[in-house]
Nucleic acid binder design. Structure first.
Lengths: 138, 138
DNA sequence: GTGTATGCAAACGGTTTGCAGAACG
DNA sequence: CGTTCTGCAAACCGTTTGCATACAC
């Protein structure tokens, strides 16, 4: 288990447990957001057995601490990824392929405008693109 | 019931039924997206009684037809609004207030770039902002 | 008349809650 | 050692499915 996971937890004042460290390591290693089941199975491959409920609770704590982001791909469930690595996704509506979009985020540039116009404080946003992947186009 | 609802249904080749017309009229009248329960209750106030399942099925048909958009505010359920009126939303993470954001949509401008870079066809996107509303800031 | 839309009952999947025991600091 | 985290069982809620009846075209 990486030293990084311990450091991350300490930096946000969370207790260091085996499950929490393993989830941070797992999320740091994946190419696209995982749902709760995938996280649990990924942990199992790493010989870390956590109850589904525990995974939910750890993820919830991580979201509150701001180190994990909750993502919706219109599947009727959420996916999760580390918040540190800000980017968006393209989701194929036919085969479900998920592709990270690493281009400049244009949404953040709008925060100031929205805050001034509406008197709110913007902290986060969701931005996902939907359509057909190259395979499903043909 | 408005003539508009009949016209909309005919224009997308859907059968004209009382429930479908009522849902279109309802969605055309609301200031922010409704969830399934709110739609059903809103219909009840208009003396249109539809089973929950029927509301789900009508909404599903409308999404396929492209006249309704599905929206996620990280509540564990979806909300719906007419697709004709493209805009985004600000959601207060404390009190749940929903505010429409009518500024220019910067996400659509990215479609071409993403399509060229990733070889996909972008058809739609989600873009919602989260934070604290003016009341909850203080 | 034919095919689709609706209502009802039941199932389903993701998520949350309560409580007792285990582990962190 | 006190507080927090975890596991287990059960409940919860949004959503989907199967089938019989009613309605649109």
């Amino acid at each position: 288990m990486s030293d990084n996971s311990r450091d991350v937890l300490i930096s946000v004042n969370l207790k260091v447990t085996k499950g929490r460290r393993a989830i941070i390591d797992l999320l740091a290693s994946i190419a696209h957001p995982y749902d709760i089941q995938e996280i649990q199975k990924g942990l199992k491959l790493r010989h870390v057995l956590l109850d589904t409920v525990t995974v939910y609770r750890i993820i919830e704590v991580f979201i509150q601490a701001g180190i994990v982001r909750q993502i919706d791909f219109r599947e009727g469930k959420y996916r999760y990824e580390l918040a540190s690595d800000h980017h968006h996704h393209f989701v194929c509506r036919n085969c479900g392929l998920i592709e990270p979009i690493h281009d400049v985020c244009v949404a953040k540039e709008q925060y100031g405008l929205i805050e001034n116009t509406h008197g709110v404080k913007v902290e986060d946003h969701s931005l996902e693109f939907f359509g057909l992947c190259s395979k499903c186009r043909s």
